[in-house]
Nucleic acid binder design. Structure first.
Lengths: 249, 249
DNA sequence: GCATTGAACCTGTCTGGCATGTTATCGGTT
DNA sequence: AACCGATAACATGCCAGACAGGTTCAATGC
């Protein structure tokens, strides 16, 4: 019965409270500049000790969501809720590790798609189509798409004719998907319409690459990965995060 | 020296300790599965209370870097790869494909400039200006600009607020400039008008970043690095060159 | 009207304590 | 000698109280 240890299910009170507050922050309950309830108020509200409250606040501070001013209180900062611009509003202190990696990857994949569109060979188009098809099969059979998805992205990187691009993608993958096990941990977590989106977005990218339209390929890849980022942020908000939940499709 | 005042905003002890430990984790001091010092050990090591230590650990847990098991200790997770490791082989590999690396760096630096333009803090603008000024000094005294130039690019990468960017830049640098010897090999090889161009291009990029114009910053960085690529290609044609001739300015 | 002051509140940090889970050692038993 | 269970030592999770500062704001005194 020790399949899942105590760490697993959002056990710690601090994690729960920080997630709670994080959601309130991103939902706009606390707008930038607002003062949050004081530590003692939170202590009463959640019926926990001040230790727990302080740990929760420490997490939010590290994420740049709030700012603590000695003597004054805890204040909400700008949240990353500006969905209009790519990564705007992340001017906060630091970005979560995974988001940082994802952002780095986005930079490369966007350009990767563009280069692929201008340089791809016939054989590489073939490989891309096959990988795309394979993702579709996985979706149809309900099996995990993560590996197939990565193969597609890899095929695109290879079509840049620059060996560094697929190399880079493979290297960064290990940083993004840290623990390979546990991947089936959240069985019902990925709704069907998400999968539809996935395949549709992939298709648009693939089309642009085949047509040789670099600018369009870049745009679509950017949109695609921005979707990843948003999905990840939702996960972040909904509960204590576990990096293995991330399928950067 | 120590530009490592990283997240100096919330200069709390917990923040300091968590960044300390974070660096040790990503530097591989603690490898995945390793047990970190116990809370009481950290209490002694840093001469702080357990409250502070617990807040620091809470941050690392929320980032998925460590896992705390009640009764057992705190353990490093496997999230730390994908950081320094990835480009290890790039350095060891042959430099035959300098152009490929340069291209990889280009897409990265272009986006880096754009992100820096939208996110830079006042202090980071200061650092960028100082580095820019330093390059100018090197040009004036005739000393090599390579290091100063790199510092400028690094300052820009740091202004992205994404720690992966400066990390990546440093890694790829070592891949491009593997051995430091022979660096003074061609003293007169860099014509004056090239240097003028260099400083002028830099200035344009810096201005765009300061103004917060991301699109312009991207364009100018792209033009700047394309110049690098062209210069390199000229070198390639004219003679066999050694990697240290490359100043990716 | 205006500056001063002081009480009330806030966060930052420290100390000590209890509950509970894990680990390794030490006995005794087989 | 090998095995096994009790147990002490140590770990984290959480709690309670305290004190040192910084901030806020309203009452006070001019």
């Amino acid at each position: 019965m020790e399949a899942e240890n105590n760490y697993a299910r959002g056990t710690s009170l601090a994690a729960k409270i920080s997630t709670d507050l994080r959601r309130e922050l991103t939902d706009g309950v606390f707008k930038p500049g607002d003062r949050l309830p004081s530590e003692s108020a939170l202590t009463r509200e959640y019926s926990v000790s001040r230790t727990v409250v302080r740990e929760a606040i420490a997490i939010l501070r590290a994420d740049g969501l709030v700012e603590a001013r000695k003597g004054a209180g805890i204040f909400a900062l700008q949240t990353s809720e500006g969905k209009k611009q790519p990564f705007k509003d992340l001017t906060t202190e630091r970005i979560s590790s995974v988001i940082e990696l994802l952002e780095l990857r986005t930079v490369f994949e966007v350009e990767s798609a563009g280069l692929a569109a201008s340089r791809r060979s016939a054989a590489q188009i073939e490989a891309i189509l096959e990988a795309h098809h394979h993702v579709g099969e996985c979706l149809a059979t309900g099996s995990p798409t993560r590996d197939a998805d990565f193969e597609l992205h890899l095929a695109i990187a290879e079509a840049t004719q620059n060996r560094r691009f697929p190399e880079f993608l493979q290297l960064i993958r290990s940083g993004i998907i840290p623990r390979g096990e546990l991947q089936g941990s959240a069985p019902g977590s990925r709704p069907k319409d998400y999968n539809l989106h996935l395949q549709e977005e992939h298709g648009l990218i693939v089309d642009a690459i085949i047509e040789g339209n670099a600018e369009t390929a870049r745009e679509r890849m950017r949109a695609h990965l921005r979707g990843s980022l948003d999905r990840y942020k939702v996960l972040l908000r909904s509960r204590t995060l576990s990096p293995e939940d991330i399928n950067l499709s």
